[in-house]
Design a protein around this nucleic acid. Structure first.
Length: 539
RNA sequence: GGGUUCGUAGCUCAGCCAGGUAGAGUACCGGACUUUUAAUCCGGCUGUCCGGGGUCCGAAUCCCCGCGAACCCGCCA
């Protein structure tokens, strides 16, 4: 009913476009087909995204939630109600200290991140700080979600039914885990980790017996191994009530419990947790009797290998830093343009994404015509998703991001007004606008942080030196030269130098580049005295 | 040991998931402007779509077998 038919080319059959023609629509369509097949109620379709709270959230961590939100939008576009649950796994224990965080955190290893002080001092706990960074990213992108904390989930006993069912079936589950993924520990241990009442740590306490009538587990804090590190337990023998004492299900079964408890119909996952999802799907279907949600697997985002970005900023690509240089839409474009294939992401992708967004916009508003009708529909669809299906009524003024970077490199003081003035001179824009001001700010940050010019040794012969000093004399003169461009040309000619070569030398000195903007006005822009000083260093 | 992704122009990549003329940017070469808006415009060049098989009227695209690269899992969450 939401399919649009498009005439194909030649003998090609008519092709059906689902929704807005993106992978998100196709996924939502498959999800709906499955829900109908399962005969489930589709009055409210809930999608979930898990948020890690153990480390500083990478831009890839946003992807999970942003893509789930995309599916929610597609479902709504198809006429269904949907909501995104953002579940913070903040009862997770701290396993290692992330790069750059203080050393005293080692005293808190294996404690739930929600009970560790915030090393940045601005939130109630370590876990809350980390999840807040992620939620802040989502807020800035305009993603709406219902926040659910792991701590509250367990404290309030929201999973108690599921925990009970899982623990009473732990033997069967343990065997299945061994069969599916080869992990054997749950044939012995229960897939539930209590927080030791004595030392406050997770994982060191091993649950060995479930008392189904009392809904309690017996555990002993006997220690564990995390990575290559051995963590000694405190030896405490304890009993924990699964309906209210702190503790959590092992990851291999926890998703399933959540899916059923919160009635989740969709969850994306990264390929790193593929095995866990496999087990959870089985637990959900067979133990909890809840048909597992529709999934989509995505590749992980990696930082660009071996490239030093900035000493002070570090290499972690976070949304907060990204937004210094790019718009929220540039992040959404990165995450929505496709779900497979992205391998590496870095700040150096921002200029291309900024310009690509603008191309989408021009296509959407019909300024660019694509020859292929299907392509046009898909491109417009992607534009709509990047705008969270609420695209602007008309296109905003835009200036090529790379051009802005170049201009921002020239103008550092009074940047916005001077760059704007230049853009108007160029005829790129007619007048200043908030949108362009914003772009200048972003490109300016980019120019300041990444695009620092490198000093290049310039080879200059004696004749050229003479020409340079002549030029230098004109520049330091009291009057502003009337036709500097022409003067430079004349100087070159008078000295028997090819103007082309002379220009090249000037660009090399001023810009460390073989080419540049029209040199006369350009010298006046950066300040002729400044240029004179630079030139005299080479004579 | 298990799994996933990727391999397309000199370079960076899009196109593949829904088969229908192999594309963009950049680089390069020529021309337009008597002197360069990191230009612009016009024209040109560039391909074993990793290799091999299969399906199909038709395959870069789907399936299978290889080769190469990267990553994930094989602690734990």
């Amino acid at each position: 009913m939401w399919a649009i038919h498009v005439k194909g080319i030649g003998i090609m059959e008519e092709q059906k476009i689902i929704g807005k023609g993106t992978w998100i629509d196709k996924l939502a369509d498959e999800l709906l087909e499955r829900e109908k097949y399962l005969g489930r109620d589709t009055g409210l379709i809930r999608v979930e995204s898990g948020l890690g709270a153990s480390g500083i959230p990478h831009i890839g961590s946003l992807g999970d939630a942003v893509r789930a939100y995309g599916v929610k939008l597609a479902l709504e576009n198809f006429g269904y109600k949907s909501e995104l649950v953002a579940y913070s796994d903040d009862l997770d224990g701290l396993r290692k200290i992330p790069e750059g965080l203080p050393d005293w955190l080692k005293d808190h290893i294996a404690k739930p991140v929600s009970f560790i002080p915030d090393p940045f001092g601005c939130h109630d706990s370590y876990g809350l700080h980390m999840s807040s960074l992620l939620l802040d990213g989502l807020d800035k992108l305009g993603i709406k979600y219902k926040f659910q904390r792991g701590v509250d989930t367990y404290k309030n006993g929201l999973l108690k039914e599921q925990i009970h069912t899982i623990l009473t079936n732990s033997k069967r589950i343990g065997e299945k885990i061994a069969e599916l993924v080869g992990q054997e520990k749950y044939q012995e241990a229960l897939p539930y980790f209590p927080v030791c009442a004595n030392c406050g740590r997770l994982y060191t306490a091993v649950a060995y017996e479930y008392l189904p009538d009392e809904k309690k587990i017996r555990y002993r804090c006997s220690g564990t191994t995390i990575g290559s590190k051995v963590l000694d337990g405190c030896g405490h023998d304890g009993i924990a009530d699964i309906t209210k004492d702190l503790g959590k299900l092992a990851w291999k079964v926890e998703f399933a419990a959540r899916w059923q408890a919160f009635d989740i119909r969709f969850e994306a996952y990264g390929k790193d947790i593929m095995d866990s999802v496999k087990v959870n799907d089985w637990v959900s279907d067979e133990i909890l009797n809840f048909q597992h949600p529709t999934h989509v697997k995505y590749e992980m985002f990696l930082d660009k290998g071996g490239k030093k970005i900035s000493k002070s900023l570090g290499n972690v690509v976070t949304s907060q830093i990204w937004l210094r240089y790019g718009t929220p839409r540039s992040i959404l474009l990165l995450l929505y343009k496709r779900i497979t294939g992205t391998r590496e992401v870095g700040f150096e992708d921002i200029p291309a994404l900024m310009d690509e967004y603008h191309e989408l916009e021009d296509t959407y508003f019909g300024k660019i015509k694509l020859d292929n009708e299907i392509k046009t529909i898909k491109t417009k669809g992607l534009y709509e998703y990047v705008n969270l299906l609420n695209p602007p009524k008309s296109s905003l003024p835009y200036v090529n991001y790379r051009l802005l970077i170049q201009l921002c490199k020239i103008f550092r003081e009074d940047r916005v007004s001077r760059v704007t003035k230049k853009l108007i001179e160029y005829g790129t824009i007619k007048e200043s606008s908030p949108n362009v001001d914003e772009l200048i700010m972003l490109a300016g940050n980019y120019a300041d942080d990444f695009d620092r010019p490198v000093k290049v040794e310039v080879q200059i012969d004696d004749i050229s030196k003479k020409a340079l000093s002549e030029l230098s004399d004109i520049l330091v003169g009291s009057d502003e030269p009337a036709d500097l461009q022409n003067s430079i040309y004349q100087i070159a000619k008078n000295n028997g130098i090819q103007p082309k070569d002379f220009f090249k030398i000037l660009y090399q000195i001023i810009l460390a580049s073989d080419r540049g903007p029209k040199i006369g006005p350009f010298i006046l822009d950066i300040g002729r005295k400044k240029v004179a000083v630079a030139l005299s260093e080479h004579t």
